[in-house]
């Protein structure tokens, strides 16, 4: 019974953290910090997939979303400007 309550709490907390990190990534003006926020959102999303018993999607999300997308975005930021213009 305690395990079920714990699983329900995790099911409620992790999507709220995903939404919070997404909103933070939108509102940040520093694009490097926004990229790190997107990577954190992707990692939390992979944790959510794992606790929903889909480990295939969790591995793919952690590999592509948290590592390769971050690398590509940081390479793009290095070629352009770091701060967002208002």
């Amino acid at each position: 019974m305690v395990e079920n309550l714990l699983i329900d709490i995790v099911h409620a907390v992790v999507p709220i953290l995903v939404v919070i990190t997404s909103v933070v990534a939108i509102y940040l003006k520093d694009l490097l910090a926004a990229t790190i926020a997107v990577a954190a959102m992707s990692l939390l999303l992979s944790l959510e997939f794992y606790i929903l018993q889909a480990p295939d999607v969790a591995i793919a999300e952690a590999g592509v979303g948290a590592c390769l997308t971050t690398a590509i975005l940081i390479i793009a930021i290095r070629a352009t400007r770091r701060m967002e213009e208002v």
């Binding site: 480990p55 295939d56 591995i59 793919a60 590999g63 592509v64 390769l68």
Partner: peptide, 11 residues
């Protein structure tokens, strides 16, 4: 086991 070509390739 869970995983496959796409997941391992991404890793």
């Amino acid at each position: 086991t869970p995983g496959g070509g796409f997941q391992g390739g991404a890793v």
